[in-house]
């Protein structure tokens, strides 16, 4: 199997303080992988590194096969201005950026894909609604419709089912399954351990340091989870320089 992503001794963080520390390994193309860990474990930081929003403090992320346009990213807290006067249709249509760019129009084929995406998330009939009038769940459905249109080979979802009811989570997870079936690589940060056990073949358990990575059943043991919980979230202003030599791992 080819690797979609390869981490080599990767350290990501802010202001020299690591949030993800010495991560090495590969994500296979077509993987459906959960990233699990306590708050402050570095899940969001890892995702920001993968999509290229932050540069590594040390080590490398290789995503040779993937251009920026092949990656779709749903941040944990999207910076969406909900008071902006724009409707659901236009918002979802942003997902077509790869095809339209700055000037391109929406042709009949794209229009059909748009309608399909809106139908797939159950928002048919909401096209003309202003985004400010949507509920939290509808908002998330709309963002998933946009992800659908992005047609990306790597999809990175940062806690997509937070503050979303069971029905909406189930509907949206059906889309994740569909992406998996289409051999896309999907990385998802989650807190619901039982849900991960039931639905994700592969898991990375992160607590700043990688605790375990691999087959979900072998990763999510009571022992590993306890280890992850014990790892402190300390951000020491006066921390010494990391002793692990850059070339290691």
């Amino acid at each position: 199997m080819t690797a979609a992503l390869q981490f080599s001794n990767l350290t990501l963080g802010y202001d020299r303080h690591p949030a993800v520390h010495h991560l090495s390994g590969a994500v296979n193309a077509g993987a459906l992988m959960a990233v699990v860990g306590p708050n402050g474990a570095g899940k969001s930081t890892l995702f920001k590194g993968i999509v290229g929003m932050i540069k590594p403090l040390a080590g490398r992320i290789e995503r040779d096969a993937l251009a920026a346009r092949d990656i779709a990213y749903l941040p944990q807290a999207a910076e969406i201005d909900r008071s902006f006067p724009i409707n659901v249709f236009d918002m979802v249509a942003m997902g077509l950026w790869r095809h339209t760019g700055v000037f391109g129009g929406i042709d009949r084929h794209s229009r059909r894909r748009l309608d399909e995406a809106i139908a797939a998330v159950g928002l048919t009939g909401f096209e003309g609604r202003a985004i400010g009038t949507l509920s939290g769940g509808q908002m998330q459905r709309m963002l998933f419709a946009r992800l659908l249109l992005q047609d990306a080979r790597l999809i990175v979802l940062d806690e997509p089912f937070n503050a979303v009811d069971a029905k909406t989570s189930a509907d949206l997870f059906d889309l994740v399954r569909r992406w998996h079936g289409e051999k896309r690589t999907v990385l998802t940060a989650l807190h619901d351990i039982d849900f991960v056990r039931a639905n994700f073949p592969e898991t990375l358990l992160l607590a700043r340091e990688p605790v375990a990575w691999g087959d979900t059943a072998t990763v999510l043991t009571a022992e590993n989870l306890l280890t992850a919980r014990r790892m402190c979230e300390a951000f020491d202003e006066n921390a010494a320089e990391c002793a692990v030599p850059p070339a290691a791992a």
């Binding site: 920026a68 201005d81 902006f84 942003m94 700055v102 992005q150």
Partner: peptide, 12 residues
């Protein structure tokens, strides 16, 4: 960029 600056940054 007004509505969703993060998204624009991720695609363009």
């Amino acid at each position: 960029e007004c509505v969703d600056p993060g998204f624009l940054r991720s695609v363009s």
